[in-house]
Design a protein around this nucleic acid. Structure first.
Lengths: 224, 224
DNA sequence: TCAATAGTGTCTGTTAGACATTATGGA
DNA sequence: TCCATAATGTCTAACAGACACTATTGA
């Protein structure tokens, strides 16, 4: 344990885990670094002056995917040793979401990697990715995260697939739609989309109405 | 908006929101500051070298209440302007829990304040308190937070009151106990406690067994 | 026609909440 | 004895999950 500040480490960084759906799973955005251009890191930046943390994160996302994220949330502060591309002692991580169809990236400095196939990262970045994915999944039933992963118009099957992707398990179709209707979260448009073979699906849009706040009872769904 | 770093603001602080039950509500721990000793702040410290954030927070709690917290979690990083007792640009907030009966404090530098009657704080500290309370309540059904607020042996009525305090609403007694039994979270001791008038209550202890992970269905209990 | 997907109706087991009842102590 | 609290049993409405069925397209 070196306890000497040594003059370096004066600032902190803001690092962003940008998530997007890609097929059956989530993908994260990485930036090319290193001499051989074969190292990958989470996009990050140091803070400038009194700029708010969210502003820094927004700027990083804009630079990375060319547009603003549809959702963003702070994950937390990470500080442990030097396992970061910068020399900074502390980093603040953000989780951001880019909707389906953000595939095209402005430069080849950036690339999407499915969560199952992430290249080796700095230790601090690894923990940030884990925490960001966990944070997005945790807030699923508290914030309408799934809708941020979809374009404004979507089919109910697409929405269900997005929930299944985020939750990591299959859902029951009829129950899913019943719960959706009870919550008054979506409204149908008058458009339909024919997707290959079967019957065309009606398109819906996100349109939350009343707040139900039902939640009967306490759930002791805990881990220990 | 002053954008000049001006040479100051090199480090960051760790600030802790220590919570304890006090009657019908939660109370937070504040430290006396200022010339007239009439100003109150959240206990905080600057980080020393490569010390982990959790270590700093633990140290702060120890100094404040004389013992380790029964639960602790990072809330997030806060940075906006100068609204902090230090000159630091960034602060990392922790939420900590002290169990019922931690009333006695080692010095009169510290005091408990019920959440309904918190003296004026620095703007950043105000936001930390709100975020910490929200974080504790959010994690109620994911982590056994309520048990950390109680001594090792407690009655089921006390446990229910603790849940009601944290959730901010009344619970149904029979349903509460049924859910508790289904989750296999507590086990009875062979002790009983007579509390004034009525029938004595059996004492229980926290003893989680199997993990149920039931949670059937999706809950769209969202805010918007 | 068949295959594939969208969308809906019905049944059943589970459970939260309401209500009532018994149990057991103190005043 | 009366009162207060603990603890439990029963009923009901709500709801998740299963299953089956209809609807509507492309091949």
């Amino acid at each position: 344990m070196s306890r000497e500040p040594k003059g370096r480490r004066q600032s902190y960084t803001v690092d962003v885990v940008v998530l997007t759906p890609q097929g059956e799973q989530l993908a994260i955005l990485l930036e090319r670094r290193g001499d051989g251009r074969d190292k990958w890191v989470l996009p990050w930046d140091t803070s400038h002056g009194a700029e708010a943390l969210e502003e820094v994160a927004q700027r990083i996302v804009k630079r990375s995917i060319g547009s603003a994220p549809t959702w963003m949330n702070q994950v937390g502060a990470f500080a442990d040793g030097d396992k970061h591309p910068s020399e900074s002692e502390l980093s603040v991580a953000f989780a951001a979401i880019a909707p389906l169809g953000t595939g095209e990236l402005p430069s080849d400095e950036f690339a999407w990697f499915p969560l199952s196939d992430v290249p080796p990262l700095h230790e601090r970045h690894q923990r940030m990715v884990q925490a960001a994915v966990a944070a997005v999944r945790d807030r699923l039933d508290l914030q309408p995260v799934a809708f941020r992963l979809l374009p404004t118009a979507f089919t109910l099957s697409e929405l269900q697939q997005m929930y299944e992707l985020l939750l990591g398990r299959r859902l029951h179709k009829a129950s899913f739609r019943r719960a959706l209707q009870a919550a008054s979260l979506v409204e149908p448009t008058d458009e339909w989309r024919s997707e290959g073979r079967g019957r065309p699906a009606q398109l819906y849009r996100y349109a939350p109405k009343r707040r139900r706040r039902s939640r009967r009872g306490v759930r002791f769904d805990l881990l220990g």
